[in-house]
Design a binder for these strands. Structure first.
Length: 610
RNA sequence: CGGGAUGUGGCGCAGUUUGGUUAGCGCGCAGCGUUCGGGACGCUGAGGCCCCGGGUUCAAAUCCCGGCAUCCCGACCA
């Protein structure tokens, strides 16, 4: 049973003495699982008088907000910016935050994870031991104490939790274990933007599983994966799980949960007919059969193309399209020069390229080119003499000759034929997937959409447990490193993603599960209506409904506009005309649908128990 | 880190080009009155280190120099 049923409300404060605006506790008769109408499961019967709520809605859009979610969260008084990428969460925003947190907490608990609180201030020494101090680099906020011991603000917590588990557990009998926390994280982003969508301080749920072996890890991972689907579903998000690259965290298998959104910062590939889906970084395609141009094509022709090192420029100059050109991307692998060959309208997928070699692959930078004048930057062709590796994507097997760099500054070549004029040393799917490419599993056309990464699950393996000494003894008395997984959910980011999906031109339309209140009760002008609304508010509170009660002495238009902006799912309007007929009006925020409820039935109907 | 833009009451903005009274408008806020089912109207009022520091000048929101902050675009694809 969640803690708040025993006297702690979802805002986290123990309700011993209530302020005048927090009334009528009486939540005990609404049990968990008693899902009642539009009412949030976490309703506690809080009645908030709007005249007392710390809230100032804005009529104008804030000048620095680009996205709808950012605009509306600021206009509605949910958040306020303090510094770039740093936000205050005002009472309304905090209520939403607590709702998301509670959903996450319930699903984590149900999946068998145990909640902890790990420090935000972490010794840098721990990060040096795992080798991630360098990997994170300037992304970490760093600080020193008075003794000049170096610390960082937690960007995540693998080091701390692994060290903790290493110190406490040492037997196979202790495993599996899954620890999680919901805590603030700090990343000094290159460019914070879009309000709380990419901020430098953000609330994240991070869980860490420890198992004896890979089978155990798979079980823990699957449990987290299933819990994540429940969390995002309960939050009202349209999402897709996609195969991902692991990035700085490390490890092998990882999957991202993308909230589908046109404004999303990440692109992902998905198949129309099977369930293949992957981040564009991790996506691949089926090998394209194709057929090269015939050998009897005209011989290559040298062209003078001064100051045109870019694909677009050359294509325009030669009055052709980028897909008639070949890109030859120079890379370094173990000190040897390699070329990655793709058509001019495609990009090289660095991760796919890297996977082909035992040593790390590094694309050459401007500095490399400056240091190696023998490389004609922008004019390298697939037949460049110094290249040890020439890796071509299957899309290079097109039935026409190619235009490529002539291996000399200011010159290109037209009419280069695959097999006759150049031959790759290796074929591999190294191009970033384009829409329409064949699905690697079933061959159906792939599609590309954008999304907001709201969750990420990783199978880490033993990277951290080995580095930080988290070993266990098996039943033969042998020592092994524990096998680890880690699992993150962006709590504050979910809120932005939800607003992106659930809003219209008037404001936010919260899914019931996340709404700061269940009912937005609007009293129309007049002593009688106010008295009737007052009575209804009190009864609703007593029935366990969370009510935002607009009893302000202001004009109706202002109240309606604010109600639509704030986005509580159900608006109840107590007006003189309706009252004369013994009814109040109900409007559903998301659909605009309206109906009337007899005053006598209002509490039972609105509490969802009629 | 590179490029662009902006910084003027709580919010949105004008004024800066061409230096010159008590720095202005809308929203919001306070008071009074009329209004009251979709961001009303009238009158009155409070609230400003014009981002900061230096300089030029009789005189700086305005010109010059140097910082800082915020937003946007880009940040190895040849």
């Amino acid at each position: 049973m969640p803690a708040f049923w025993s006297g702690i409300n979802p805002t986290g404060f123990i309700e011993i003495e209530r302020s005048p605006c927090f009334r009528a506790p009486a939540a005990s008769h609404i049990g968990p699982g008693d899902r009642i109408g539009s009412l949030s499961e976490m309703a506690t019967g809080r009645v908030m008088r709007m005249s007392e709520l710390f809230l100032r809605t804005l009529r104008d859009d804030p000048a620095d907000a680009e996205l709808d979610s950012h605009r509306l969260l600021v206009r509605g008084g949910f958040v306020r910016r303090v510094a770039s990428g740093v936000y205050s969460w005002l009472p309304l925003g905090n209520l939403v935050l607590r709702k998301v947190e509670q959903i996450v907490r319930e699903e984590m608990d149900a999946a068998g994870a145990q909640e902890t609180v790990l420090p935000i201030i972490q010794p840098l020494e721990l990060w040096e031991r795992s080798g991630r101090d360098a990997a994170y680099g300037p992304m970490m906020f760093r600080l020193q104490d008075r003794k000049e011991t170096r610390f960082c603000l937690a960007p995540t917590a693998e080091e701390v939790v692994t060290t903790l588990v290493a110190a406490e557990y040492s037997s196979y009998r202790d495993l599996p274990l899954n620890l999680y926390q919901i805590n603030w994280k700090y990343r000094d982003e290159l460019r914070p933007r879009f309000g709380v969508l990419r901020s430098r301080e953000f609330l994240m749920k991070d869980a860490y599983s420890f198992d004896a072996d890979l089978d155990g890890l798979q079980t823990s991972y699957d449990a987290m994966y299933a819990a994540y689907q429940k969390v995002f579903t309960r939050c009202g998000l349209t999402f897709r799980s996609v195969k991902a690259q692991s990035g700085e965290i490390g490890g092998d298998t990882s999957q991202e949960f993308m909230a589908v959104a046109a404004v999303g910062e990440d692109a992902f590939v998905w198949c129309e007919s099977c369930d293949y889906a992957a981040n564009t970084e991790a996506a691949t395609k089926q090998e394209l059969a194709g057929s090269p141009a015939p050998d009897d094509a005209p011989a290559p022709e040298r062209l003078h193309t001064p100051d045109l090192p870019g694909i677009e420029g050359v294509a325009k100059h030669l009055k052709t399209k980028p897909n008639r050109l070949l890109k030859s991307i120079a890379f370094d692998v173990d000190g040897e020069l390699g070329l990655a060959i793709v058509p001019g309208d495609r990009e090289v997928n660095e991760f796919a390229l890297d996977a082909l070699f035992d040593h790390e692959v590094r694309l050459l930078t401007d500095a490399d080119f400056a240091a190696r004048p023998e490389l004609p930057k922008g004019y390298i062709g697939p037949d460049f003499p110094g290249a040890k590796y020439v890796v071509a994507d299957s899309s290079v097997r097109a039935p026409h000759p190619w235009i490529t760099g002539a291996n000399e500054i200011d010159h290109h070549v037209r009419g280069l034929v695959l097999g006759r004029d150049f031959t790759p040393t290796q074929w591999a799917e190294i191009a970033v997937v384009a829409p329409g490419d064949p699905c690697p599993r079933c061959g159906a056309p792939l599609r590309i959409d954008r999304g907001i990464e709201v969750g990420h699950v990783f199978q880490l393996g033993t990277k951290y447990t080995e580095a930080l000494g988290a070993h266990y003894t098996d039943d033969n008395g042998d020592q092994h490193p524990m096998v680890m997984g880690c699992y993150g959910i962006g709590v504050t980011r979910i809120i932005a993603a939800v607003v992106e999906e659930h809003h219209d031109e008037h404001g936010i339309a919260w899914p019931a599960a996340l709404a700061p209140f269940d009912v937005h009760l609007i009293a129309m002008p007049g002593d009688e209506t106010l008295a009737a609304a007052e009575e209804l508010a009190e009864k609703l509170g007593a029935a366990g409904v969370d009510v935002l009660f607009d009893e302000r002495e202001t004009r109706p238009g202002v109240k309606f506009a604010d109600a639509d902006l704030l986005g509580v799912p159900v608006q109840v309007i107590v007006g003189a005309k309706g009252l004369a007929r013994g009814v109040v009006e109900r409007k559903r925020r998301a659909t605009g649908e309206r109906d009337e409820i007899p005053v006598a039935d209002a509490v039972t109907v609105l509490a969802g128990r009629s």
